[in-house]
Design a protein around this nucleic acid. Structure first.
Lengths: 190, 190
DNA sequence: GTCTATAATAGGATAGAC
DNA sequence: GTCTATCCTATTATAGAC
């Protein structure tokens, strides 16, 4: 079989790093700990990554790319149902839920890596798509509650099966939004 | 006037530390930076705090004590209106909003300090008070969205005056809960 | 209460052998 | 691709003078 684009060891390093980062935080994890977990030494890591920062960036890149692509899609769509939009945001977050948890719980590290503007811009764009670009405080608060709540559900209810979690989280988020299409199951016309 | 219980310098150290922690994260802030900001040296800090960890704990203690007291109150109350309960939670978080932001954005540090169980227990108790002890996934999700959303509003809408922010955040949180008393201003009977 | 000086440790990173 | 050995820097923390 052909040589993989991302070498096997490189991927094992990324996996071990993610595990340790989730267990004890990014800043609290040294290159030595990552190497030890794999039975390697620090210099071996430097063969695969030019620096600690390079490792971090390589880890986050897939999530960053996916979120950006989903957002770009929604910003070009004509008018989309809020529940569909929140659903796409839930799905992309769930797909990378380890990375999502990491980004959500370690803002100082994101700041050091220069991703803070990225994250704030995401939030701003999402709020704009959900509540409109010139929304007042009330509407922005509803969008913030819906979006923050979705992410919190993903992290805090991780023992719930995906399908059930998705429905419950989206129902709650849509209710916060005041969306008319609160739940697909219990629509009630006024 | 009498000698203050917390010496002036001790308080200045705590203030400077909080500022730096918010700017660049807890782990990224060294004792040297804190001392420099005050025109002191590291050993001076050790006169006031026995260790770096002691400083951290002293900083968080007021918030921890306040939240615990509010929670204990609500758990002994007979039956409380959800909006009142969320309001008390908003108020105590707002009163310490710098510390709230810090705790929310630096979970790894809280973990290292042993506060993670504290925070998870808070969340569990709040969800229990809001949704009942034996709530299903749907109700727990709604409580999580309401609580997480409140905190997010506090951090992300920090340019909004307290009174307006409080009303908007509580409206959105109550809507997420599905509370019947959504907004005091725009009640509409079905 | 604050200083100078220093110990002890650990981090990221590199050189060069294999 | 991975190793041993090492450099440089920064950190927490302490001893002892003022």
């Amino acid at each position: 079989m052909p040589r993989p684009r991302t070498s096997e060891t490189r991927q094992r390093i990324l996996d071990a790093a993610l595990e340790l980062f989730l267990e004890q935080g990014v800043q609290q994890t040294s290159l030595r700990q990552i190497a030890d977990r794999l039975g390697l030494t620090k210099p071996a890591l430097y063969y695969h990554f030019s620096s600690r920062e390079d490792l971090l960036n390589s880890l986050l890149q897939p999530l960053v790319a996916d979120i950006d692509s989903v957002l770009a899609e929604d910003e070009h769509g004509t008018t989309s149902d809020p529940r569909d939009l929140l659903g796409r945001y839930f799905d992309v977050s769930y797909r990378h839920h380890a990375l999502t948890t990491l980004m959500l719980h370690d803002l100082p590290t994101l700041n050091e890596l220069g991703y803070i503007d990225q994250v704030l811009t995401w939030r701003r764009r999402l709020v704009a798509v959900l509540a409109g670009p010139n929304a007042g405080v009330a509407e922005r608060a509803r969008a913030i509650v819906a979006l923050g709540g979705l992410a919190d559900c993903l992290v805090l209810l991780d023992d719930v099966p995906e399908h059930e979690l998705r429905a419950a989280a989206l129902d709650a988020a849509c209710a916060a939004l005041g969306s008319t299409s609160g739940s697909a199951a219990e629509e009630q016309p006024r």
